[in-house]
Write a protein that binds this DNA or RNA. Structure first.
Lengths: 324, 324
DNA sequence: TTGTATGCGTTATCAG
DNA sequence: CTGATAACGCATACAA
């Protein structure tokens, strides 16, 4: 029995090149000897690794693990594994990590970091590297991407508050260097306009980061400014929690004095007091869909880039009520 | 210039075998050509991958990501990367994942799944596979491991409640098939005894899983049983949240009617109402220390197994108060 | 249908 | 100190 024949018999794709009897014998022997193919040798020969790089900002951000699971769960049945790397939102680290992944010969890349620009990714894409963007839109959709429809999410929040009877609705937005920060604010503004409400720049404040501290600071300054309003759309659940803190510090109640809507539906938001009304983003589905796009691009390299927009939903809990 | 020489010059370990002038030339050329060594070819030749397998139950469990970061942050400076795989607590899946990692030729394994027994791990260890256990004790310490001192954590909780004046303290324990469930209960019992309090079996209930639902069910049955007590040590933060629910459902207040202590200090436990007093486990450190043990075992294969016990701390918030 | 030969990119051994 | 050569385990082009 000779090694090339065995190789053909073991590989489902080439098994037809071998007689069924010898194929059978090889399979038997393989089982008997507990033979395990060496993926490293295979990869050296084929220049494929059945592996994709998954570039995320930080695994300890509660939004990330569901997305990672979505990726892994879709890749696994196709025989692919994911290499996970954290960038900590450091551009240099991101570049280094991506280069390291390329050295490892990953077959493709799913990039889920949120910064708005990244020339390296465009360049890699032009060089033929298979890339899918998750949670971030880049360029004019030349690179396939999967994101939540953040503008629609903001509109969902505004619609809900308007239906409750609110007319003066504030927005605490995030860094405008993040696609989420930018698009959620834009969605809020469009929705306000669509409802025929006045667009008051005084009702718009901006956080330097998606944190509770920044949320409390920015929303606190709005509360202290004397501007009148009865509800707020926060650009992020963490910011919404910061709004809670700012209200509590001023003896105001939610939703009695102020309705608050968050964004993302992170774990435990249903356990807050009050339980947070928020825009739910299906992060698992973002990851799963990104993995599907990547697998598609493996199967059909010529396929044009698709951009997938996932529709968020509103989860109504106890932080919103009609205005007093 | 000839390939073997270049290889020697590029590798810091063998660079001394080459004249400094040619080494310099090689390094220059490598930079000029943007040469990137192929780790796959290297691994095929050396039978080492600079990679460790990290076996976890489920990335979406909030306790897990900090541990993963601890592992990754310690491995990275040593030039190692981690392959992360989820088992979803399925023994068959765990076996399959570990075999797949071995096929990929990982240099070592960090296993963080929580079941009490696993013959495969002992067998692999005996075969010379480098393994470190995280969050689980196995056998008689033959395999190096890193865990929180769960018994000490339970004692911390009991000590705190006793200091507040509580005398009848219940415990909601977890599955006794999990090392955490077992050891935390044992720690509670020892602490009760150490304080000279009566060991009342009626004060002990058990959950079938570390979930809020099970916590609410088990603790609710205890509340309904008519047994008198003023405080409860929950074996897990999720169980503690279940206790909150059971109390609320019966019109009881925390900490007014009942003090509650959790275990783990998961994210957002400081945001609960009341903010949860809980035993904090340094999961990042568990991962970091596990990675250190593994790196040690690479450096010195003969080194005897060490078992590291990390001391938890008590975080006192608003869910505990003197008895009424 | 099967065997033979070659090469993937690197490192280690052995001469020179 | 450096060059030549072989080998890691597998997959494929080609020959039989």
């Amino acid at each position: 029995m000779h090694v090339a024949t065995a190789s053909r018999a073991l590989n489902p794709d080439t098994r037809s090149l071998v007689s069924s009897t010898t194929a059978e014998r090889v399979l038997q022997a393989a089982k008997a000897l507990d033979y395990r193919p060496n993926p490293i040798a295979r990869s050296l020969r084929t220049a494929r690794t059945e592996t994709v790089g998954l570039v995320i900002p930080d695994l300890t951000n509660p939004l990330v693990p569901p997305m990672v699971r979505g990726v892994a769960d879709v890749l696994a049945p196709a025989g692919y594994d994911a290499w996970i790397v954290n960038t900590d939102n450091d551009p240099d680290r991101e570049i280094a990590q991506i280069e390291s992944l390329r050295d490892k010969q990953v077959d493709g890349l799913i990039v889920a970091t949120a910064r708005l620009e990244h020339p390296l990714l465009e360049q890699l894409h032009d060089e033929g590297v298979r890339i899918v963007l998750a949670n971030r839109l880049l360029g004019a959709g030349r690179i396939p991407s999967v994101t939540a429809d953040n503008a629609a999410g903001s509109a969902l929040a505004v619609d809900h508050l308007v239906a409750l009877g609110h007319r003066r609705i504030a927005h605490v937005s995030g860094p405008q260097t993040l696609s989420t920060g930018l698009v959620r604010r834009r969605g809020y503004l469009h929705a306000i306009r669509d409802h025929g409400l006045p667009e008051d720049p005084e009702l718009l404040v901006t956080c330097a980061a998606w944190t509770e501290e920044e949320g409390a600071r920015a929303f606190g300054s709005l509360l202290d400014s004397g501007v009148e309003f009865t509800a707020v759309v926060a650009g992020h659940d963490r910011v919404a929690l910061g709004c809670y803190d700012a209200l509590a510090a001023r003896g105001l109640s939610c939703p009695g004095d102020m309705s608050v809507v968050g964004f993302n539906d992170m774990p435990f938001m249903d356990k807050m007091r009050p339980a947070l009304t928020t825009v739910r983003v299906a992060h698992y589905e973002v990851g799963a869909e990104a993995a599907r796009l990547l697998l598609d691009s493996f199967a059909d390299p010529g396929r044009p880039a698709r951009g997938v927009l996932l529709q968020p939903t509103l989860v109504i809990r106890s932080s919103t009520a009609p205005p007093a």
